[in-house]
Amino acid sequence: MAFNAVKDKYRSKVGEVVLGATKEQGGTRDYTITIGGEAALPFLHFEGEIPNRPVVAMEIWDVAPTDWNDCFKPFYADVWNDPVAWAKKCVDEYGAELIVLHLKGADPDVKDATPEECAKVVKDVLAAVGCPLVVTGCGKPEKDNLVLPLVAEAAAGENLLLGVAEQENYKSLTAACMVHKHNIIAQSPIDINICKQLNILITEMNLPANRIVIDPTIAALGYGVEYGYSIMERARNGALQGDTMLGMPMIGNVGYEVWRTKEANASSDDFPGWGEQENRGILWEATTAMALLQAGMNVVVMRHPKASNLIKQNIEELMVKTSFDE
């Protein structure tokens, strides 16, 4: 019996966002990265074009982390006191295509770095590596509203991805991205309505939709990853059906969420029933990223170099074209 493949017809596709700017484009990056643009559900090449592969970004901080698991020491302990060296190592040794610089040190409870100090770190990292850059604030809105506009100004022309904007606090970052021509991360708390609403609010301030990346807020495997997974599947279906205010590419902080869990960190001695700790942690991170990629995530922000390699390889394999046409 012959079968006819079911190809869902979509009215629209995911919007494209370009990260970074080369010399000709007014920046100093060696290359740019385009995310989004798919006209099909994740990796279903047989029903529509998937022009851009999802990207694995590596996370670095402007201060040395004090609470990261010991298994990170062999990879980062020699560089994590210096964001410039850290960024270089990620690019040169771990093959990072995209770096996420988290300005943790701006947090008044961490180092209370001044906006000027933060802007300098961003400039220094930009000078040291040629990849496009994502910069996120410390997460405290009062401080981030001082820091991020200055970062935006200092890096004008570089076409950064800056975050995060939230429903209660999006205006100053949106304005900074407008003036200095950067992209913005719009973060909503695992809620598709707020996600859409925030995108509307940001575009109403005249930042174009092709400069917005959605952070739907994700949780780690075992801690509610399925909530984000389903929100993302719904958003992606909505985008393909033509809802442009859900049609932006998506980013998620996989490494950050995973390495707070007990399962990633608990020692093999304390939990012999769970097996060896480091590989367990690596797979906790990779499995979380794998699942979110299946739901449509375009940028997974990762921490462990081995987990990041596993996912790069997985993406490579999933980008192999499939077709059911004779």
């Binding site: 495997l221 399962e263 029933g273 097996g275 590989n279 367990r280 797979l283 906790w284 990779a286």
Partner: peptide, 9 residues
Amino acid sequence: KETLLPLES
């Protein structure tokens, strides 16, 4: 164990 626990989770 450390490989099947994440998958089964």
